[in-house]
């Protein structure tokens, strides 16, 4: 893979077009509107909460809703990302141009990530508005939390692009959702593996599977800092940096696998 100024221009064009497509897509708009409604709904729930727990509800609900909707958007849009290009044969007029296939994959990935970034910023603004309306204060920790959700979205998007390059939308959605769910409970599997009793002790044959899950599936719990924000704990910049490196590592692996699969495909 060689990148020069022209290569960046082509990747930028593909990413821009992917974002433009999403912004004109009703599914994306519907998901974003649902997410906004969900966050605003947290204000009503906070009113119903035990006295003093209202801000906690808004905080937890906000983190949960933003993270969930950004990931769901990544899965929904990512599932059809490459499939649609092949199915609708729009790829014919792209690959037949001086566009290496890896640039196409990277462009599609960055385009989808771009749209998730826009969604994330929009949802964060709504969330911050809800917090301040409730009398709360926006801290650096909130910003860091949003940044970490973006890193998680990078991984989920990478997963979706990888499966999209290999299989159909239904399986892409299924596999990506499955790994997303496992990634979210990664720490639970880790604890079960370390426990002196439980499924991995009773069923020794399951241990290699548990080891594989822990070793291969990204730990998405790394990107959830809602408890730290709630407790007012400081989240250091080194944690943010390490999380970014962790996410980038997985993204690189997923995109390499996507490119490898896509490179060999015949567009009949």
């Amino acid at each position: 893979m060689v990148f020069n100024k022209q290569g960046f221009g082509r990747v930028g064009a593909i990413a821009h077009n992917t974002m433009r497509e999403a912004l004109r897509n009703r599914a994306f708009i519907a998901l974003s509107v649902s997410a906004v409604a969900f966050i605003i709904f947290s204000m009503i729930l906070s009113e119903l909460a035990v006295v003093g727990e209202g801000s906690r509800v808004i905080l937890n609900f906000g983190f949960f809703a933003i993270s969930l909707f950004v990931s769901v958007t990544a899965i929904v849009m990512g599932a059809v990302l490459l499939y649609k290009e092949v199915d609708k044969k729009t790829i014919y007029t792209i690959i037949s141009k001086p566009v290496p296939r890896y640039e196409f994959i990277i462009g599609k990935y960055l385009g989808l990530l771009g749209i998730l970034f826009i969604e994330l910023v929009a949802l964060a603004c709504v969330w911050f508005l809800v917090i301040t309306t409730d009398g709360g204060e926006i801290t650096t920790a909130h910003m860091v939390g949003i940044g970490l959700i973006l890193f998680e979205a990078m991984i989920v998007t990478g997963l979706a692009v990888m499966f999209s390059a290999m299989t159909n939308p239904a399986l892409t959605a299924l596999f990506t959702t499955g790994l997303f769910a496992i990634g979210r409970v990664h720490y639970v599997v880790q604890e079960m593996l370390q426990a002196k009793e439980g499924v991995f002790v009773d069923q020794p044959w399951a241990r290699p599977i548990g080891d594989l899950v822990v070793g291969v599936v990204p730990d998405l719990g790394v990107f959830n800092v809602s408890q730290q924000v709630l407790l007012g704990l400081e989240i250091g910049s080194s944690y943010l940096g390490q999380s970014l490196v962790y996410a980038l590592g997985y993204v690189a692996i997923f995109l390499c696998l996507a490119i490898f699969a896509f490179q060999r495909r015949d567009f009949v």
Binding site: Q6, G9, A13, I14, I94, K97
Partner: peptide, 8 residues
């Protein structure tokens, strides 16, 4: 315009 960008 999109295709023109692909040709740089």
């Amino acid at each position: 315009d999109f295709y023109g960008r692909l040709y740089s």
